[in-house]
Design a protein around this nucleic acid. Sequence first.
DNA 1: TGCACGATGAAC
DNA 2: TTCATCGTGCAC
Length: 184
Amino acid sequence: MMHKLGYEFYNRDTQIVARELLGKYLVHKYNQVEMIGKIVETEAYLGAHDLAAHSSKGLTDRTKIMFGPAGLAYVYLIYGVHHCMNVVTEEEGCGSAVLIRAIEPIANINAKTNGPGLLCRAMSIDRQLNGYSLCSDNFYIAAPDELSKIKIIKRPRIGVNYARHWSKRLLRFYIKDNLFISKK
DNA sequence: TGCACGATGAAC
DNA sequence: TTCATCGTGCAC
């Protein structure tokens, strides 16, 4: 058993959401299959002032979901090849979100999940889910009833070297010693 | 309308 | 280290 996270979970400080998402279960029911993965690695994107965030470009067709209300999924195609999934956080208009970077397979997942593109492929997450509510019946994040105590490691975000000093901020979080993280 | 460039992953 | 591959944002 577990309980679904509501709007109020996401409508909080982005770094807190990024840390508290660790250990939570991402659920996607698709073609009668319920896929479940435990979130083990995240990155915080703080808003329009964060040069590493897509929202730093301002409000555009692509970023409008990021500027939307907390609890929406922001899913985009990267390098023309892979999808990345984010959770929109904080008040509407902030442009802040948390990137899900790795999950640990819990149910009905039979592919690699140690990276943002890999976990989207393994859980059948693509741009069709962009702007979709994470308070939906078939797509949501839930807290397991038994939460294990974890130690959280902080590291710089991956692949954002273009963002100057923002690339040095410790905004990547992962569960210490977990076998499914994308990178130490 | 054209073009440079990714919040990646896999192969070489 | 290179490359696949395409949507986005911005220059022209």
